[in-house]
Amino acid sequence: MNVLSGSAIVMTRELRPTVRDPFTVVFSLTQPLILLALFGPLLTDVPGLGDGNVWDWFVPGVLAMIAIFGTSMTGSNLLTELHDGSHERMLVTPLPRSSLLIGRAVKELVPLAAQAVLIILVALPLGLSVNPIGAAIGILILGVFGIGLGALSYALALAVQAQDWVFWAIQQTLMFPLLILSGTMLPLDNAPGWMQFLVDINPLGYVVDAERALFAGDFASSTVLHGGVAAVTVAAVGLGVGVRAMRR
């Protein structure tokens, strides 16, 4: 069996519970929606947001947020399967080891895209102006980034094995710095120099900037290219690390 068909089997299996019960996708949007409702209005008149409407600045950031909330936690599903024995059962089949990781990671694209569309639909009546083609490309970049982060989350689950708390400790510790340093919540123009360095090496920051440019229909800017490169890099690194962890 080749890696591609193996990954397709794994991906289909992973997607089934979501398809059977699509409300899980909506429920996991509770936190981003709360943020949208309670944090978004506070951003009016904050310097550094550009001249446009606050939603044009904030909504792309919320999309980045769902990308890291959902996908960074996805490894916990594998933890459950490591505990209950269903992962072991898959390991005894002739499925290529790499497809057990790739199928899972690539599946992240689907709920992520669905959630992104929902967030955009919710934000439209608030006054979000969005370029449809830009949004489509933006969601794709987001999805690629999500595949990479999902793969890293699975790799983390495989690395900590039975110790769930280590998984959550690392996931929680990394999530907020990643989020804040991406300029999702607040602009980073006033960040001190040392922080600026962390901002520069945070791939999520490039993705968020690219989302904003794409939503505004600004396709030509190098920001989009940088975001795409950042997403593809994260995906490549994530899949590389993840497949290695799965083969071990």
Binding site: R13, P17, H83, G85, S86, R89, V92
Partner: peptide, 16 residues
């Protein structure tokens, strides 16, 4: 192989 744990994923359907 029938391991010590349960092979069926907890959130999956039996026939699936």
């Amino acid at each position: 192989y029938v391991g010590q744990g349960n092979g069926g994923g907890h959130n999956q359907r039996v026939r699936d």
